[in-house]
């Protein structure tokens, strides 16, 4: 560990880094998402044209990434709340992080078909 740093490494720091990065990414997506939804006030055609880009295979991968970021941020956020409000939260923060990671992996496997299925059918044909 270099001198003069507050960063401690291990599960505590890296989950904090991941929480921060996913949070910023989700927030930037939210701006775009409110703007694209605002097109329903312009015309149905304008909205449908922009939403069509969300159905392309490449954007489907980005959507899978968005789901990944949101699920991690949500599950780890619940862990942060447990650390803050549960009396044994700090003691079990590592176990809770690995629970978060485990749940996240299971949910991400479950999200493959619903989120990426249509893209796979388009790319590989069905």
């Amino acid at each position: 560990m270099p001198a003069g740093t507050l960063y401690r490494g291990r599960e505590g720091m890296w989950s904090w880094v991941a929480h921060r990065v996913t949070g910023v990414l989700i927030f930037f997506f939210l701006f775009v998402h409110v703007l694209d939804t605002a097109l329903v006030r312009v015309s149905p055609e304008a909205y449908d044209t922009v939403v069509a880009t969300y159905k392309s295979p490449i954007v489907a991968l980005l959507e899978y990434g968005l789901v990944a970021a949101i699920l991690f941020h949500a599950l780890n956020g619940l862990r942060v709340i447990a650390v803050d409000f549960w009396i044994k939260g700090a003691r079990y923060q590592k176990q809770m992080l690995w629970t978060v990671v485990g749940l996240w992996v299971v949910l991400m496997i479950g999200a493959i078909y619903p989120v990426l299925g249509h893209a796979a059918r388009e790319v590989f044909g069905s």
């Binding site: 329903v40 149905p44 449908d48 939403v51 949101i70 999200a111 619903p114 249509h118």
Partner: peptide, 24 residues
């Protein structure tokens, strides 16, 4: 948000069904 993701990206054809009519 997780409810929103389920409705928009997972259930009933996922993102493919989204359009002006769906929002309406």
């Amino acid at each position: 948000v997780i409810g929103h993701l389920l409705i928009q990206l997972v259930l009933d054809g996922g993102v493919s069904k989204i359009g002006f009519a769906f929002v309406a």
